[in-house]
Nucleic acid binder design. Structure first.
Length: 194
DNA sequence: AAAGCAATAAACACAC
DNA sequence: CGTGTGTTTATTGCTT
């Protein structure tokens, strides 16, 4: 498999408004990747509201909101994180308090992070300079930021790999020397906020 | 009650 | 040969 690029979510992007609402709600519970993106988008403000469809397949806007990930807690020093758990219902952008992620990290030490595996992977990849990571690196990144997995029952790595393969949001990149490198794609296969 | 989704487990192929 | 990686299928639980 050669370097794959420009992954297009041939997903069920054909969903419409109703679903969108549903998805939004979903953010509250699961913090899945697509949802996170949605949040990112709303936060990044706008990012042009053209033909939603095109935008869906075209991840440009996503790239613009990349910093979202950067803000996502990650080791960065005190950067506010975008908490996908905020109440999107209220069009307000959540207030990102430092304590926010502190709690998060703290919690993650003992309990499972409120993020889906896909989001976890996404964060890891986005946090990397090249936006691509070795599977191993994804593991360690997650381990580093979510200590919960250090003691978590085995199987989460399997889940990571499973997500990598299954989720169209991630693409495998063939590198000359490195093997099994993955590149994260900023994709939201779902309907987003119009 | 049914459907969708994410998590989890596991079988299997492959490469190093 | 053993391990890590990658794909795929099945199952389960939760939410809508």
């Amino acid at each position: 498999m050669g370097p794959i690029t420009g992954m297009t979510p041939d997903k069920k992007s054909e969903v419409a408004g109703t679903e969108k609402a549903a998805k939004l709600k979903q953010i509250n519970r699961t913090g899945s990747l697509p949802e996170a993106v949605d949040v990112a988008r709303s936060k990044a403000t706008v990012v042009e509201s053209k033909s939603a469809d095109d935008e869906l397949t075209n991840l440009n806007w996503l790239h613009e909101s990349t910093n979202l990930l950067t803000n996502f807690s990650l080791g960065s020093e005190g950067l506010p994180i975008v908490n996908p758990l905020y109440d999107i219902a209220s069009d307000n952008v959540p207030s990102f308090s430092p304590s926010c992620y502190q709690n998060l990290e703290k919690k993650s030490a003992t309990s499972k992070p409120p993020y889906s595996f896909s989001l976890l992977i996404y964060m890891a990849i986005e946090h990397s300079p090249n936006k691509s990571l070795l599977v191993k690196e994804i593991y360690s990144w997650i381990l580093e930021h979510f200590p919960y997995f250090a003691t978590a029952p085995t199987g989460w790595k399997n889940s990571i790999r499973h997500n990598l393969s299954l989720n169209k949001c991630f693409q495998k990149v063939e590198r000359s020397h490195e093997k099994g490198e993955w590149e994260g794609s900023l994709v939201s296969p779902r309907a987003l906020i119009a």
